[in-house]
Computed example of a mutant assay.
Amino acid sequence: MARNQDGTKPLKSVRTAFKIIEYLKEHDSGSVKELSQQLGFPKSTVHTHLSTLNQLGYLTNDNGTYRLSFRFVHLGRSIEESHELRQIVSPVVENVADETGERVYFAVEENGLVTNIAIVEGEKSIQHQFLPGGQTRMHTTASGKAILAFLQPEEVDEIVRQWGMPPQAPNTITERDELNASLESIRENGIAYAREESFKGMFEIAKPILSDDERPYGALEIAGPIKRLDDQQYCRELVDTVEKAANEIEVNLLL
């Protein structure tokens, strides 16, 4: 079995439990038979894990159909309330969404993935199910690339080695040379763009939030339909908005 970066051997039982949890998250519910067939685990293994998670209060069981319980909501709320950076950025994210009407994110890097910690839907935003805690590969989004641009080269190397650069949308960057050129442009201009790189039809604009020593706290992103955001004048307006908002966040981080 592969080892983690610190040399620790992962526990198979924990991996199995979280594969079951992730499956139920994606499919809303599942039975022992369904989970066994879809995940390739023996029915006895699936049943033991489901029963244990049910007893601990993390799953509900309705005549053999299992679902995630609201205990996960409680955990999520606890994380949100204790996350200092989220408390600082959330009001700014809300203001930008109100001002622009677009979907606005604040994202950080966690375990080599870009992770949304604050999301607000503006009145014009396309309704997708984006929630705090959602993760994706960093090379596919404007916010991910904005963060990558200010990591050390060896950190970028490790992230690419761990997660690869598979295509996710029509224009996803899949070659390292192209990614390097994109990151260099972001360092020069201070703004990251993603045109149909994470989702077909989506345009993203992001600004990295940096510490005094230029380490990225995260990135502020505005996203919306490419037909609307790729208009030259409107795009400039959104860049101005995201730059002012990012500056506000950086000032608040110093207080």
Rank of each mutant, 00 (worst) to 15 (best):
W163V: 01
E178S: 06
E123N: 02
P132N: 11
N252E: 15
I117F: 14
E221M: 11
T174N: 02
A223V: 08
L56P: 02
G40R: 08
E158S: 14
S13W: 07
H74C: 01
N63Q: 11
T100W: 01
K244L: 09
I222A: 11
D98V: 07
P208E: 06
F199S: 06
G7F: 12
A97E: 08
V108S: 05
Y66E: 03
G57M: 14
Y23I: 01
L113F: 13
Y23E: 01
A192H: 00
N116G: 05
E188G: 01
G190T: 05
L53R: 04
L24S: 06
V108D: 06
A142Q: 02
V114M: 07
D98S: 08
F18P: 00
G122A: 02
E243N: 06
R77A: 07
Q87F: 09
S182Y: 01
A245S: 15
N4P: 00
K200P: 00
E99I: 08
L229K: 10
I249P: 01
S51N: 07
K19D: 15
E84H: 03
V242A: 15
K244A: 14
V93L: 00
Y217N: 03
I222M: 06
S44K: 15
P42M: 02
K207F: 04
N54P: 00
S69D: 14
E178W: 01
D177F: 07
I226F: 14
Q152F: 15
R215A: 12
N111A: 09
F203I: 01
N95C: 01
V120W: 05
E188A: 11
I119N: 05
N61S: 08
S31I: 05
A223N: 11
K244W: 02
D62Y: 04
F72K: 00
Q233T: 08
G133I: 04
H128K: 09
P132H: 13
S69T: 06
S44G: 07
A146F: 11
R77N: 10
T52V: 12
G134Y: 05
P42Q: 12
D28N: 12
Y234A: 09
V92E: 07
R86H: 14
T172F: 04
Y234K: 10
N116S: 09
N252V: 00
L53H: 12
Q37S: 14
Q55R: 13
A118D: 11
M138H: 03
I147V: 15
T136Q: 04
H27Q: 13
S125H: 06
V239M: 08
H74M: 02
S185P: 00
V92I: 14
C235R: 15
E221I: 00
K43R: 14
L238T: 07
A246W: 00
R103A: 10
L238D: 04
S78R: 10
T8A: 14
L68T: 11
I191A: 05
D212F: 06
F203W: 10
I222G: 02
P225T: 11
G224S: 02
L183F: 13
V73D: 15
V96I: 14
E196L: 09
R215T: 15
E196G: 03
W163D: 02
K145S: 04
T174E: 10
L24Q: 10
L255P: 00
V251S: 15
L75F: 09
Q55G: 05
L151D: 03
E121T: 03
G201A: 05
C235H: 13
